[in-house]
């Protein structure tokens, strides 16, 4: 049935454990690659710079709906950054920041995106590794 397919897909997400206000363990079991993470943050399809700006002198098209990412690695631990990427609503239930590793509880998701998280576990780890390098 449809429900079964949706569940099977949702179950395709790597399991993670929230401890306190973070996720301590890598979603992939391996550290991410910060250089790949930077490229991902800058890619339009990842959607970060629709809302955020940051230390990205090469692009003019940055958003201002959200804090500048400069210094994010000072303000947050890796564990907190990982949880924010996975499900930012855990920090602020009204946030407009999407949950990047979640595939359930959403309304009218477009056909091409249904049942899938916005980013893969490996992409999240790359971005987390990059954010951790953003120190003032």
């Amino acid at each position: 049935s449809l429900a079964f397919v949706a569940n099977a897909r949702a179950e395709g997400l790597a399991p993670y454990e929230i401890i306190g206000d973070g996720i301590a363990e890598s979603l992939t079991g391996a550290p991410g690659d910060a250089a790949r993470g930077r490229a991902l943050v800058l890619a339009r399809t990842t959607t970060c710079i629709l809302c955020h700006s940051g230390p990205f002198p090469e692009t003019r098209f940055q958003g201002d709906l959200a804090p500048d990412l400069t210094g994010a690695g000072n303000r947050w631990t890796v564990s907190q950054l990982r949880l924010r990427m996975v499900d930012a609503a855990r920090f602020n239930p009204d946030t407009i920041m999407p949950s990047y590793y979640r595939a359930d509880g959403l309304v009218r998701v477009g056909r091409n995106f249904a049942g899938k998280p916005i980013l893969s576990a490996a992409e999240i780890e790359d971005i987390v590794a990059y954010l951790a390098t953003l120190r003032d």
Binding site: D64, L65, I96, P98, L106, V107, R108, V109, I118
Partner: peptide, 18 residues
């Protein structure tokens, strides 16, 4: 709605001019 989980109001009432 949608994978990005945003409502019209999030952009057009709360964040216009951004």
């Amino acid at each position: 709605e949608g994978q990005l989980n945003l409502a019209c109001t999030n952009c057009h009432d709360d964040n216009f001019e951004k």
